[in-house]
Structure formats: structure tokens, C-alpha cells
């Protein structure tokens, strides 16, 4: 068991002046104008500053896709790996280095198609990391192919007449995996909500899964235009234990539901909402078992002790 808290471990500053938001920025993002990924990047950098995350003790792990370019724009450590395989890498990082802040950035193709097996198991491992699924309901990087989260009828280069299958609901899927511990949803065009959601996710001790509904103006055109215009198109799930907005931000919502995030059944019900997009915290359990704690129990033993143990083992084979 870890005796220090996560913050003690990850964010022991080395006596420097406070980090400013610019300390977390790197390069110029190459996303299209109006791409929802930009808004997420801003919120994440703001979170890093608010929490004063030590840049060298922070790792962003991603797969492949437009969204997975994310780590290149963070002045922290980054791992831009393989399509669909961000989770195993992030798990290896966290397992070996519980003292690092680990973020995973993934896309809907990355997470819900090629990486599905890892996604399901990552939920179950419940290692302490913050996961942002940037879901634009399309394959962006490879230029408009149907994604598992594309709504039925979505016209794409692989289904010119419109996709035929019903989409996967990433929130419902995550909720259904045993040991799920933090499941939230937000939309890129509500930056205050994005920020509060990512903050709650970061603060959660375990695998925090956030689906960000993300605009891809390049390939999905004005998919969310009416949603943005219509105040009742979003439903805010809120609660004293959930994700809270300040009064001003809350005012921009017409539909507000008090949802206690410990109630998983209600959470599942809201996840199925049809005529409005629910945003907020669906479920949280701070006490779900964590695999990174199992990992940490036996790493970093002093070499002399290890040599003694190995010799003892060799004795059993002695001739």
C-alpha cells in the first residue's frame, strides 16, 4: 500500500517558483480551426497549472489519431504510441512509476474499435490515471471513415449511403465493466464544464474515464450546431458529490438533474437518454480496488535483500 497520497508522490515540487500556464505549452497545435481538441488542450493546461503538476513528473500517453497528437503539445513527458494501444503503455508506466501523473488521450476509433480489449481491461484494472476519450464520432486522421460511435446513417467514405449499425455508447459500456470507478461525459463547447470534469477526474483515485463529445468541423460539418443553439439539448447531471459548475455557468442549462454518482443504476438510465445529451458524472466509487497498488507493493526492493532471496531460491536447486 502507498503511504503517501497521490499528490505527495506526484507533485513534490523541487523548490521552484510556481508553474505558469505557459510552462505546460509546447509547439503550435496542428488541429483544424474549430476542432474540439483545442478546447480540451486548453482545459488540461489550465488543470496542470491549477494543480501545479510538476511537468517532468507528468506523462501523457496516447494512441494514434488527430486527438492522439495531444502529447506533442504538452511540455511534459509524452508517449505517442500505437493505434489503440495507449492503455497498456500507460498501465506499464503507472505500475512501474506510481509517482508519476498519468493521462491517457484516445479517440473513438482508438479506444472503442482497435483498442477495445485494452479499454475494457483498463477499466477493470482501475489504475490511477485520467483518461480523455476525444469522441468526434468519426475517424479524423484517416479522413472520414465510420467509427463505432458514428450515429446510424452517418455518411462516410466507407459507408457513402450512411452507416448501418447502431453506435456503441462509450458511457454505458464503461459503466458495465466490473470495477468501473469514475465515468463522466462532457462536450468540448462548454469549456467550464470540460475543466470541472477533467479536474474531478484528476482528483479521483483510480481510473477516471471522461468522454468528451468533440466537434470535427472538417469531416462532421455542423453535426452539433443545433445542439449548441438549443439550450435543452444538453442535460446537466449535478450533485454535491458530482461535478459542480458555478452559478453563472449553470444558468446556461435548461435541463438540470440532481444525480448522486454513487447510484450506478440511475447512472445507467441517464446514459441511455435519447432526446438530450447528458453531461456530468454518472458514477463514482472511490473505493474500487486498484491494480497499481498491487503493483507498487513489490517494486524497488533493496538489492541486498533481493540477492539474499535469489540465493535462497538457488539453494533449493543445489546439488
Amino acid at each position: 500500500m502507498l503511504e503517501l497520497t497521490h499528490d505527495d508522490l506526484c507533485n513534490m515540487s523541487h523548490g521552484e517558483t510556481a508553474f505558469s500556464i505557459d510552462d505546460y505549452k509546447k509547439g503550435v497545435p496542428r488541429w483544424c480551426p474549430g476542432c474540439g481538441d483545442n478546447s480540451v488542450l486548453n482545459s488540461v493546461q489550465k488543470l496542470c497549472k491549477d494543480k501545479q503538476l510538476v511537468p517532468e513528473k507528468t506523462v501523457f500517453v496516447s494512441g494514434i489519431g488527430c486527438s492522439s497528437r495531444f502529447p506533442h503539445y504538452m511540455n511534459t513527458y509524452g508517449f505517442h504510441g500505437l493505434h489503440g494501444r495507449a492503455f497498456p503503455v500507460a498501465e506499464g508506466v503507472k505500475f512501474r512509476r506510481p509517482d508519476l501523473n498519468v493521462f491517457v488521450i484516445t479517440g473513438d476509433g482508438d479506444c472503442c474499435s482497435i483498442g477495445t480489449a485494452h479499454w475494457i481491461h483498463a477499466i477493470r484494472y482501475n489504475m490511477n490515471m485520467t483518461v480523455l476519450l476525444l469522441d468526434n464520432s468519426i475517424y479524423g486522421l484517416t479522413k472520414k471513415q465510420t467509427s463505432p460511435t458514428s450515429a446510424t446513417g452517418t455518411k462516410s467514405n466507407t459507408h457513402p449511403k450512411g452507416s448501418v449499425l447502431p453506435p456503441i455508447n462509450p458511457i454505458q459500456t464503461t459503466l458495465s465493466v466490473s470495477n468501473a470507478s469514475f465515468v463522466a461525459q462532457t462536450v468540448d463547447w462548454k469549456p467550464a464544464h470540460v475543466f470541472e470534469t477533467i479536474k474531478a477526474a484528476y482528483e479521483h483515485p483510480g481510473f477516471s474515464f471522461v468522454r468528451v463529445i468533440q466537434r470535427c468541423p472538417k469531416f462532421m460539418g455542423d453535426l452539433y450546431e443545433t445542439t449548441i443553439a438549443d439550450q435543452s439539448a444538453l442535460t446537466l447531471l449535478t450533485h454535491e458529490n458530482g461535478i459542480k459548475l458555478d452559478e453563472k455557468a449553470e444558468k446556461s442549462f435548461k435541463n438540470i438533474i440532481q444525480h448522486n454518482p454513487s447510484d450506478i443504476n440511475k447512472g445507467r438510465e441517464y446514459a441511455e437518454m435519447k432526446d438530450s445529451i447528458p453531461i456530468g458524472l454518472f458514477y463514482q466509487n472511490k473505493n474500487a480496488p486498484r491494480y497499481d497498488e498491487y503493483g507498487a507493493h513489490n517494486i524497488g526492493m533493496p538489492v541486498t535483500e533481493r540477492i539474499t532471496a535469489i540465493n535462497k531460491e538457488l539453494d533449493k536447486y543445489a546439488v
Binding site: E91, N298, G300, M301, R306
Partner: peptide
């Protein structure tokens, strides 16, 4: 003797974990 075996969900995850 210190150390952990991680039984991953498949071989791809196993090597990804080791690389991480």
C-alpha cells in the same frame, strides 16, 4: 526477490505494458 508478473489481457497488451 522483488518484482511483479503482470498477466495482461493479450500479448499485445503484455508487450505494451513492458514497453511503458
Amino acid at each position: 526477490a522483488g518484482g511483479i508478473v503482470h498477466q495482461a489481457e493479450d500479448e499485445i497488451a503484455a508487450i505494451g505494458f513492458a514497453i511503458g
